[in-house]
Design a protein around this nucleic acid. Structure first.
Lengths: 339, 339
DNA sequence: CGTGAAAGCTGAACCGGTTAAGAACGCGGC
DNA sequence: GCCGCGTTCTTAACCGGTTCAGCTTTCACG
């Protein structure tokens, strides 16, 4: 039994397929009586519009958007950020009957190739770009392609693309003040890749907040969000003569790694070392001591980004927006230094 | 500047669009000279085939397959299994120029609706189904739909669908023997949802292996892969008068949660309690003590499943296969009981 | 030199929708 | 009775490919 088409409906209803199309799309051109009859027949036949056919029509939409994730695969699995983001994006897309294409790449060249292929082959109506970098070549590429795009990150360096950016200054200030209030004077930060835009933003915010709080020595070392890199970085930091008494990690996975290193080196958390994770997930609540974390509503970010993209796909002018700021959720991994 | 089409190529080459189609698809019907000329022109114009147009042609493929993930969203984020699976699937799909549609649902009804919509609207050429349950209603639904499908799990209860199943008996036996050899007599297992097919399989394997090893008392309690459920279950187990001395968790996230509970209750791991995680991820190596785990090559499973599905999409008869068995990787969370 | 077959290419139909242009019809106004 | 107009519907083109039937041209073979 073949998929029913509008021609089948037209035959049963005794009208032309043009009339059926008008009726099904709620456009004027058919009487209410006829429209209802056609809708009934369509329901009875179990008709659903063919995606490819719709897309092929002049001005037609594909009904799908793409997301490329370019991070090392092993880390990805345990990186809660992405699935939360995807979950939020999906919520909004599903409501609009739009599908999500997910692509995992090894490097940025592959990512660019994916965008180009999607545009050339008309696989998607638009894309959401994440992990904005400084002087990101993807921005120029996406601006050239006939492919609506929304950037997660910014607000600078996104060219003419609408972006959903987050101001992390406030959260960073909260973190630094909190740690300073606990008595910490030497705070170090284990950051994400230096090339990422939001990494830089946080580094600047970190330096400024430390200055405000009157902390002399702050230090940021760059890692890549993986446990191994964080492990190495933490070992080095804790081996310093004047070792830091508080560590701020750019994601929760690295914070867990840091916790493990502290344990292994016999540095008690939190009496000798405080640990803060940026980005919360169930993980932070499961390890012991549970991890103090900066909580961002990643699901909401995903939803908002999806909404923005759907707007752009419809041809609306979409303004850049600010995502809700993160908040510090203190748990057991931070505290005053033992005397 | 519009996307170039084969008509544009035809015009430049001075041939009909039929000839261009033959040339571009490597089909006979054009001379080698003409074919080369057409290929050159296509390259110069930056031509790429339109996905929707290809799909619309009689017998055409959409060039995409779908994956629905039906698990609680917060757990998903930190569940390494899925991203590893996706990563493996993607590798194989990318090589074939096929895209992946990912859909996250709240319940099984939504999942079924997604399959039906994908089939009715021709959004995908096939789907990979995961988390097989006992008497799974999705099997019958997928058998009725004109939608090639491959099941992860089995080998029974998949109807006529080809499946990639894993025999976990061997790995389970290895785990139980190992723990028994360390001196453990009371082993408990914190499992995934009872409705999942592989949960049942493991439960049976667990009971059998325990019998073989001469262990009197084994116990399986069911959780849902989330940290909270595992936390509750572990608390209850460790509060028993005759508490188990070894715990086997059905995924790594729950094992991490269990480790936290042990710590909180002052039960030292591994001298008083051994912990084994089923499914390895970076997480297992990051927490302290690092977690002994059963390692399965999830990426390879994803690749194999994708290969099987691509075969089915091409109309080949695809036989069910067995996935490579898991292996025990002992780390620091298991050991002999302290005297 | 005639003939048959193969090679190389064209024209047109087809997939399943959307949409612009136009036809048929009823109706009110003059 | 005729005109103009709005409603309702039909016709046909179009999107960008694939593929089948058929038409030339070439060429080997008897």
């Amino acid at each position: 039994m073949r998929r029913p088409t509008i021609v089948d409906i037209a035959r049963v209803a005794g009208v032309s397929k043009g009339a059926v199309s008008y009726a099904l799309n709620g456009k004027p051109g058919v009487s209410d009586r006829t429209r209802q009859r056609i809708l009934d027949i369509a329901r009875d036949l179990g008709w659903a519009p063919s995606g490819p056919a719709r897309a092929l029509s002049p001005g037609g939409r594909v009904g799908a958007v793409g997301l490329v994730v370019d991070r090392p695969a092993p880390a990805l699995g345990v990186e809660p950020f992405f699935m939360q983001l995807v979950s939020g994006i999906e919520t909004e897309l599903t409501a609009a009957g739009v599908d999500l294409l997910l692509h995992v790449t090894e490097d940025q060249a592959e990512e660019l190739a994916a965008y180009r292929r999607w545009a050339a082959e008309r696989r998607v109506d638009g894309v959401i770009m994440v992990d904005l970098r400084t002087d990101d070549p993807r921005v120029a590429a996406l601006e050239e392609l006939p492919l609506p795009a929304v950037v997660l990150g910014g607000p600078e360096g996104v060219g003419g693309l609408p972006c959903l950016h987050s101001d992390e200054t406030a959260a960073m200030r909260e973190v630094v003040r909190y740690l300073a209030a606990l008595g910490h004077r030497r705070i170090a930060r284990i950051a994400g890749p230096e090339g990422f835009r939001h990494t830089r933003d946080r580094t600047r915010a970190f330096r400024e907040a430390a200055g405000e709080a009157g902390l002399a020595e702050t230090r940021t070392v760059y890692a890549d969000y993986t446990g191994e890199a964080a492990t190495r970085a933490t070992r080095r930091l804790l081996a310093l003569a004047e070792r830091p008494t508080a560590l701020v990690y750019d994601n929760d996975l690295m914070a867990v790694a840091g916790l493990g290193v502290a344990r292994e080196m016999g540095v008690d958390v939190p009496s000798r070392l405080s640990i803060v994770a940026w980005d919360d997930s169930v993980l932070c609540g499961l390890v012991r001591p549970s991890l103090t974390a900066v909580v961002r509503d990643t699901v909401a970010c995903g939803r908002e980004a999806a909404r923005m993209l759907l707007g752009r796909v419809e041809g609306e002018a979409v303004a850049s927006r600010q995502a809700p700021p993160g908040e510090l959720h203190p748990r057991a991994s931070t505290g005053p230094l033992a005397p």
